[in-house]
Design a protein around this nucleic acid. Structure first.
Lengths: 342, 342
DNA sequence: GTGATTTGTCAAAGCGCTTTGGAATTCGTT
DNA sequence: AACGAATTCCAAAGCGCTTTGACAAATCAC
C-alpha cells in the first residue's frame, strides 16, 4: 500500500493525502479525517526512503559508541541512551550508532557523518581540548555535545551540567562541617567532567586556604571496583582524609565497601558526597547509609538532547544553543561533622 | 555532486557510471578506471536515500537494546556490539538501535521492523519460550538470533554456543578431580544460556549419581557484586561446595573476592571454572590465580552474525541457517583436586 | 563480406514521497 | 450580480539512484 494507491482509494490526489497526513493547513478537516480513517483501516505507512529522498531528512541522529569499557561506565551510557531513546521514539526518529574504538573517535564520527544516514550528530565523553570539535564545525551537519570541552572556546551547541558548581557546593558543605582533609574519587582524568569537578573542589578549598595533594585524587573508570581500591588507598594514608567527593554513585558503591571493611562509620568517621546520575538501580537513599549527593538526571539530559537535536533537524523554533544545568545538593546521612582529631 | 553531474563531467551516461561503481561486468575496464578516478577527485558519494529507494534496501540492521541494567551485563553487550560493528563497517552497513525497556521487547521489535529503517533484525538475550520468535516469524523480515530459546522448536536462524556442552565438560573435569559438592553462579534464570548451562551441569552430575540443590545455584545479574554476594553465601554453608561453575569472568571477579576474603585458596580449597567471553579487559590469565575457563569469543560471534545478516540482505550465498559453536575448555590454575574432607 | 554474437553504452522508466504553481470552488463584499 | 479573497484541491515536477530494454560498435565464424 503506497500513497498512490491510497489516494486512488479515496478518490483524492496524492498531494491532498500527503498534506492531510503531514498536518498542512490547506486541507479540509473533514477530508483529513477521512484520510486518517483510511490510513487506520489500510495500515498504510509512508515509505521512509522515499520520504527521505524527497525531504532530504533521514529522521535519524547518529552517535558514536565507544566500545572499550574503560571509558566511562556502560551503566551511565545506557541510562543516557534511554533518555535519548524515549524522546526519539516519540518523534519517530531513530539512532544510528557506530561502535568505535575510543582511539578512533574522530574517524568514526566522520564516517558516520558522510555516510548520509544521519541528519545530526550527538557527541559525548568530551575531553579537554577535544579534537572532535574542529572536525564537527567543519562538517555542515548539526550536532550537539553532551558536556563541554575544557580549554576550547565554548562556541558550539552543548548541554552540560555545572560540574564545577556541583563539586564546589559539595566541598563547601563539607568545609562548613569542619572537614579539612579531602579526597576525590574521580572519573578518567582526560574527561571534561572530571576536570571541572576537580576544579570545583580545588576552588572551594582554595577559598579557605586549603590545598589537596595529587595522591588524594584518584582518576579511574567509573565502576565500583576501582572505587574500592582507591578508597582503600586513601584509608591507609597516615593523615587519612575525612571528606570524600565521588564522581558517581557507582564509584561510591566500591568506596563504601572499603569504608565498611576498614570498620569505619560512614557519616561519622568519613563523610562522602557522590554525584548522582539518577541511575534507577542505584538510588542513593537505598544505601545502608543514605548518600548525600549532587544530583542531575542523566536520562533527562538524554531526553533533552534528543529534543533539541530533533527540533534542529525539523527546523523548528530553536532552543537555546547552550544549556548549563545546575545540580541539586541533597543532604542525607553520609555527611556529618568532621571527627575530632585527638 | 550527484550521479548526473558526475556522468556529465565524464561524458558518460548515468547508467554506465552507476554500473562502473557497482561492479557490474558490462563495462569496459578502462571506463571503470576513469570513473573511479573521477570519484576520487570529486569526492562523489552516492545518496543513500536514493539508493535505498531504488533498491529497496536500507543497508542497515536493527537491534533492540535493553536499557535496564539488570539484564545481562552491559560489558558483554558492548563487546558483542563491537564485533557486529567491525563487520558492519566493512560492508558499509550500519545499525539502527532502539533502546527499550526489557518488558517491552516485543513491542520495540515490532516498531523497529515496521519503521522501514532496517533490512534485518538481530535478536539477543533470548529467553526460554521467547515470545519474540512468533512475532519475528510473522514478520517478513530476515532476522538472526544470538542464542536460542529453550523450549521452542529451533526452526529459526540462530548462532549459539554450546552452553550445555561447555558446562557439561567443565563439570566433568571437576568430577574427575574428585569434586562432589558443586555450586553454580549463573546469569538471570529466565535467559536461555543460563538454562542450558545449568542443564549441562546437572547432566554431568547425574551421570555420577550426584545432584545439586537449589540453594547451590544462584541466578543474578552478570556483574561482580552479585557474584561476590552469592559466593559469600555458598562459603557459609555447612557443607560448603568445593567446585564452582561460573557463567562469566565478571561474576568470577566477585566470587574470587569472596574466596580471598574468606581466607581460602583458589585452586586448592575451591576450584572454579568460569565461562570466558574473551572480554579484553578481563583476561582469565591475568587473574592472580589464572582461571580455568570455557571460552568463546563474544566479539567473534557478533562479527559472524553481522556477516550472515548482511549476506542475507544482499542475497548472497546463504550461510548455514543454524550454527552451534563449541567452546574450548582451557585449564589454568583455578582448578585442582578436591580437598580431602577430614 | 555477410550474418550472428558479444561488448559497451545509453535513454528512459521507475522507486514513493513532497512541494510548487495553478485551477476550481466557495465565501464575503459591495 | 459581480468581483476579489480565501479555501480546497490537483497535475506534474522533482529528489538521486538502479535497472530494463534497446541500440550501436566491435568481434567472431564462415
Amino acid at each position: 500500500m503506497n500513497l498512490k494507491q491510497l489516494s486512488e482509494l479515496l478518490g483524492l490526489s496524492q498531494t491532498t493525502v500527503s498534506r492531510a497526513l503531514n498536518g498542512y493547513p490547506e486541507v479540509n478537516e473533514a477530508t483529513r479525517e477521512r484520510v486518517l480513517q483510511a490510513v487506520r483501516e489500510t495500515g498504510y505507512r509512508p515509505n521512509k526512503a522515499a520520504q527521505r529522498l524527497a525531504t532530504g531528512k533521514a529522521g535519524s541522529i547518529g552517535l558514536v559508541m565507544p566500545t572499550a569499557p574503560d571509558h566511562y561506565s556502560d551503566v551511565h551510557f545506557g541510562e543516557f541512551l534511554t533518555g535519548l531513546g524515549e524522546e526519539a521514539v516519540r518523534h519517530d526518529f531513530h539512532f544510528v550508532i557506530m561502535p568505535a574504538d575510543p582511539n578512533d573517535e574522530v574517524g568514526a564520527l566522520r564516517r558516520l557523518a558522510i555516510s548520509g544516514n544521519v541528519d545530526a550528530l550527538f557527541i559525548a565523553y568530551m575531553r579537554g581540548h577535544d579534537p572532535r570539535l574542529a572536525m564537527l564545525q567543519s562538517l555542515s551537519m548539526p550536532f550537539l555535545v553532551h558536556g563541554r570541552s575544557f580549554g576550547s572556546e565554548p562556541d558550539y551547541p552543548y548541554l552540560d551540567i555545572d560540574n564545577e558548581g556541583a563539586f564546589y557546593d559539595a566541598a563547601k558543605l563539607l568545609l562548613q562541617l569542619g572537614h579539612t582533609r579531602f579526597a576525590l574519587l574521580n572519573g578518567p582524568a582526560h574527561l571534561d567532567f572530571a576536570i571541572r569537578r576537580k576544579n570545583g573542589l580545588i576552588n572551594a578549598l582554595a577559598e579557605r586556604g586549603l590545598q589537596i595533594s595529587e595522591e588524594c585524587m584518584s582518576h579511574t573508570a567509573m565502576t565500583d571496583e576501582p572505587g574500592q581500591f582507591a578508597m582503600e588507598r586513601f584509608l591507609q594514608m597516615p593523615e587519612r582524609p575525612t571528606a570524600i567527593l565521588c564522581s558517581s554513585t557507582v564509584l561510591a558503591l566500591g568506596a563504601i565497601r572499603a569504608v565498611n571493611q576498614a570498620g569505619l562509620k560512614l557519616g561519622e568517621d568519613i563523610s562522602l558526597i557522590a554525584h548522582d546520575d539518577v541511575l534507577p538501580h542505584l538510588k542513593p537513599e537505598n544505601f545502608s547509609v543514605p548518600l548525600t549527593t549532587t544530583r542531575s538526571s542523566l536520562r533527562a539530559a538524554g531526553a533533552r538532547i534528543a529534543q533539541r537535536l530533533i527540533a534542529t533537524v525539523k527546523q523548528e523554533t530553536p532552543y537555546p544553543e547552550q544549556e548549563l544545568w545546575k545540580t541539586e545538593l541533597i543532604v542525607r546521612a553520609s555527611t556529618g561533622p568532621a571527627p575530632r582529631t585527638d
